[in-house]
């Protein structure tokens, strides 16, 4: 069962399909979306719905943890950009962390690392977003 909106403490599953799982976690004022599997043109919409459900209406800081994500296509990058813009529009904060070497390369080649804040690990990211 998919849940929507901001929860209390603890974690919840926003989407869980064959190729993609996104879990929400509330870390104080920051929401973390932990993503595993792969994001491509075929599930980019599910990815977007999951992130939007985690964000809910009032959230102002979202961290996308990509530690267990093995692949992201340009359709997935577009979703990240859309979410970043949504938060920007509400003066919120957004960042990504824990990129695998291959995803890090995708960010570098496309230049996304110059427009989206990238953090090495969740702890750095939380410190930065919380400040």
């Amino acid at each position: 069962m998919e849940t929507s909106g901001q929860q209390g403490n603890g974690t919840w599953v926003a989407v869980d399909t064959k190729n993609l799982k996104v879990e929400g976690e509330n870390k104080g004022t920051i929401l973390v979306a932990k993503t595993s599997g792969r994001v491509d043109g075929s599930n980019a919409k599910e990815f977007q719905d999951a992130l939007e459900s985690i964000l809910g209406n009032n959230a102002t800081a979202l961290l996308l943890d990509m530690e267990d994500l093995s692949y992201i296509s340009s359709a997935g990058l577009r979703v990240i950009l859309l979410i970043a813009r949504q938060l920007q529009g509400k003066s919120g904060k957004f960042g990504v962390c824990s990129l695998s070497p291959s995803i890090s390369e995708v960010f570098q080649i496309s230049g996304f690392d110059k427009i989206i804040p990238v953090h090495p690990a969740q702890a750095d990211a939380l410190a930065s977003l919380g400040s």
Binding site: I109, G111, F112
Partner: peptide
């Protein structure tokens, strides 16, 4: 010399 994808900024 790594430019950024077009249409973003």
């Amino acid at each position: 010399s790594g430019g950024i994808a077009l249409g973003l900024v």
